[in-house]
Design a protein around this nucleic acid. Sequence first.
DNA 1: TCTGAATGTGACCAACGGATACATTGCGAC
DNA 2: GTCGCAATGTATCCGTTGGTCACATTCAGA
Lengths: 216, 216
Amino acid sequence: MVPCSVVGTTKGRRPKKQSYHHGDLARALVGAALELIETRGPEAFTLREAAASVGVTHGAAYRHFEDKTALLAAVSQEGYRVLAARLGDVASKTKGSSHERVRALAAAYLDFALEHPAQYRVMWGPRLNEDGRFPSLEAAIQDAFDVVVGVMKRGQDEGVFRKQPEARELAIGMWVTAHGYVELVARRRIKVKSRRVAVEYFETLFEPFLDGLERR
Amino acid sequence: MVPCSVVGTTKGRRPKKQSYHHGDLARALVGAALELIETRGPEAFTLREAAASVGVTHGAAYRHFEDKTALLAAVSQEGYRVLAARLGDVASKTKGSSHERVRALAAAYLDFALEHPAQYRVMWGPRLNEDGRFPSLEAAIQDAFDVVVGVMKRGQDEGVFRKQPEARELAIGMWVTAHGYVELVARRRIKVKSRRVAVEYFETLFEPFLDGLERR
DNA sequence: TCTGAATGTGACCAACGGATACATTGCGAC
DNA sequence: GTCGCAATGTATCCGTTGGTCACATTCAGA
């Protein structure tokens, strides 16, 4: 499997057509799409260019993706998969108080979003799940979200966080804040010099929310 | 001026070509664009259709807008103009404490965003101000933002809100929260039955932030 | 009234997303 | 092994879109 190219290894080099069949075109297309989106922006992204960049006619893409939107959904899903993995890592490896865990979680979220701004925009982009298309994308989003809910729940179980509202609501509050902040930074409404500064500035904004988490 | 149609009066009826020149095509196009965007979504919006809907060739649009993006920028600017007006209204007319004024401001923001979800998406859409195009759009955004800063400043002057961080930062915190919330609602990550419920739910999420505003 | 600037038209272009008929290939049944 | 079919990729076509340009029409000021 995966003879020619894998996600992240699609750097420019066209596999020079060693065989009629590609091997794992679906994955290669997602990789190419990711690269194009990150370099030229989601708006400029075209199916044809993605196909060409892996050495294949644009028609071939339709064997693996129903439409352009479906390919974008795959890119989005891949993003949520990586995000969930990172969040899960942070959640399990962070020692210390639940407060610190939440802070680390937020930092990981910001890091991901600011490292891959274009992909992040796809992940929040056009209505990808209109009428329940792409249930696997929906699941990937849920996975990422569940990590946050888990951390909140743990904080409650340890008696550090308040028990009302429920962990789910606390997680939503955090998501609202982090995402809103990312958007304002990405759209240059908040100007920060570096990613590190962005995270630091966020933490001061985030402090009231953290205080609000405290057990009453 | 404005002989044929004005923003908001472009309902379907084609002005049946009474004259070769339209009169105020720029405004009419923005109105038509708004209507199309709100009905079919920003992605499906086309310049040609907007031009056709006001009874004009698509080429004519280019006499008034450099590009499709420029037309979208105008739609966005119109949105910020209305938003700023509404916020200004609420800010000046709300009696009571500064807390209540901030709450009312947030409610007005949410109302606007949830009333015009598609336009709101354009307002946060593709990178419209890349490299400082559309300075007037930038100004419109600033106007809306300044209303919020003003309310925060007033709260500080009255000694109700803390003086650190500055009013500007407080306003940003509020913007982050409100916008993040709008996005989660619009993308159905937060499910609410009605706009009223959406605003109510927001206020519970928003409470910690309001508490954090308190003078120390 | 005449004339140039502003505005709208119509034809044209390249690129895109999508569909379809056809070519090539891998793989399981025999 | 080889045979046949399903999977995959190709070539070509189509309608639509954003954008340009030469030309037509109109308006307004001298």
